[in-house]
Amino acid sequence: MQQPLKLKIPSLTDNIRIVESFIDHAREYYKFNDDVYGNIMIAVTESVNNAIVHGNKSDKEKNVHLSVELNEENLSFVVEDEGLGFDYENLPDPTAPENLEKPGGRGIFLIKNLADEVKFSDAGNKVSLVFYLNS
């Protein structure tokens, strides 16, 4: 069984490039294919960006923790920030007519459409993204 890969970065949006390199390393380590790679890259970087900007309020003294683990036929990424969390149960629908012109609010919708499973922790400052490798 392979060990989980872990990364801790300060909350600076410039560190997204480190996350992209981490995902590339995970791709080599776990040998997952191109079909799932694009979805992982977009969903995980969006999750980390949300953790930096919304969770940790871009406070570089706070960190974002990222890990990835292979479980049977699934890759599981966990993104955790040091913020207070949010109410993930009551998010506005970005596809509703009244929200179409709003500049934000699509990130979690996008993540939920790219990952096979998305689970938030009780407070909302931790999210697990599961990607099926043989779907």
Rank of each mutant, 00 (worst) to 15 (best):
Y29T: 13
N63E: 13
V64K: 05
D35Q: 15
A51K: 05
L91S: 15
S21E: 11
T95V: 09
K62P: 03
N15C: 06
G124E: 03
K112V: 07
A26C: 07
E72K: 15
P103Q: 03
E82A: 10
N15M: 09
N134L: 14
E117M: 13
I108N: 10
S76F: 01
I111S: 15
L5E: 02
G83M: 07
I108E: 05
D24L: 10
Y37A: 07
E101H: 08
N90R: 12
I40V: 06
A123G: 03
D116H: 13
N63P: 01
G105V: 02
I52M: 15
M41S: 09
V78E: 04
Y132A: 15
H54D: 13
N39F: 09
K8F: 01
N125C: 06
V79C: 09
Q3V: 12
K60S: 15
S135M: 07
E69I: 06
A43F: 11
N56P: 08
Q2C: 05
N33G: 13
H25K: 14
F32E: 09
N113Y: 11
F109P: 04
V68Q: 04
S135F: 06
D24Q: 13
I40S: 03
A123S: 14
P4K: 04
P92F: 11
D87T: 13
A96E: 13
H54C: 15
S11K: 04
S121G: 14
G124P: 02
L66Y: 00
D59K: 05
Q3H: 10
Y30A: 00
V118K: 09
E46G: 10
T13W: 15
S47K: 08
N56D: 10
K112L: 13
Y30H: 03
L12Y: 05
I18F: 14
L70F: 00
Q3R: 12
I23K: 03
V79M: 08
Y37W: 05
E72Y: 00
N56C: 13
F120T: 06
K31P: 02
K102R: 13
V44F: 01
I42P: 02
L66I: 15
V36T: 14
Y30E: 00
V19A: 08
V68S: 00
N74S: 12
V44P: 00
R27Y: 01
V127L: 01
E89L: 10
E80D: 03
E61Q: 10
G55W: 11
K57N: 15
N125D: 05
N33Q: 12
K102H: 09
N134C: 11
S135C: 12
V48D: 01
N90Y: 09
N99G: 06
L70Y: 02
L70H: 01
F77Y: 00
N50H: 14
N71C: 10
D59M: 08
S121M: 06
K126H: 02
E61F: 07
D116L: 04
P94K: 12
